[in-house]
Amino acid sequence: MAEPGEKPSIDLNNLKAGGFIKERGKDLFTIRLRVPGGRMAIPRLKKIAQVAEKYGGEFIHLSVRQSMELININFRHFDAVVEELGEADQKVASCGARVRVPVACGGCEYNPNGLVDTQKSALEVDQKLFGTPTGHHKFKVAFAGCPFDCPKSATNDVGFQGALLPRLDKDACISCGLCAKNCAPGAITMGKDKKPLFKDDPCIWCGDCVKVCPTGAWEAKQTGYNVRIGGKWGRNPLVGSLFATLLPQEEAVEFIAQVLAWYQEKAGGQGRIRLGDIIIQEGPQLLLAHLREKFPHSVVTETIPPQVIDTQIGSRKIKP
């Protein structure tokens, strides 16, 4: 461990992707840890606790994007912290104009509401796109496993929300009525023949009918992600709008890569500007057309630009 006053030797490569954030105090930094999808293996948790106790302050901060942040780390200890965390395969996260660590809900392995494996998606994105410099601004991704959307997908640059399109096998239906009773949006009612009647329009693709159906008469016709793009929070928030429905889970990484490529091209020369503002400038049709080339089955026919929250303070630089 380097002593205060000793000339620090720091591997600047560790700092490349960010994740080391200056604090108020002299020499002190917060180190943001890379925890894709908020899943923390217990051996890693133990190692983090040891490192925090040795080099950090009296607590760890749980960030709003599922990271653990070591606080009050003296910059002289960067290398030691990185090395010791590395013993348990714990890496440092990113900050700045890069693809950030993806957020995700618990997914579908143990959560009864989950329709898709958001944890798997978050890990894939983290492995393939983490830290990619955007050249402009931060780039956030979130995965929600169902329409409850706990991760608030529409407040991300690209937000995924699990969905299930149901299909009924009338012959297997025993007319119990549980599906109609369970259908919160009222898309299913019981018909005169005592069989369920399905109306596509109010259906939110939550899959509750499939989950409650005693005989498997309701089954998944298709599952995947509904994708909203262009959301952000912070100063001048925007709610992302719908660009794709039922995108196959295995296409999520490539989808993000395509959005990122479009953003990088269109934002050229404009400096620090978020994706949502670029979509407002260019119009959503251009991005729809770009995405339709690779994802013709999932991209919607039309959409609207990201939506401005009208109660914000200060007028927007980029007007819708």
């Binding site: 025993i174 119990c176 009525g177 549980l178 009773k181 005693p214």
Partner: peptide
Amino acid sequence: KGEGHKLLGL
């Protein structure tokens, strides 16, 4: 249903 019981009607 998740516990393996059979739902027969409501």
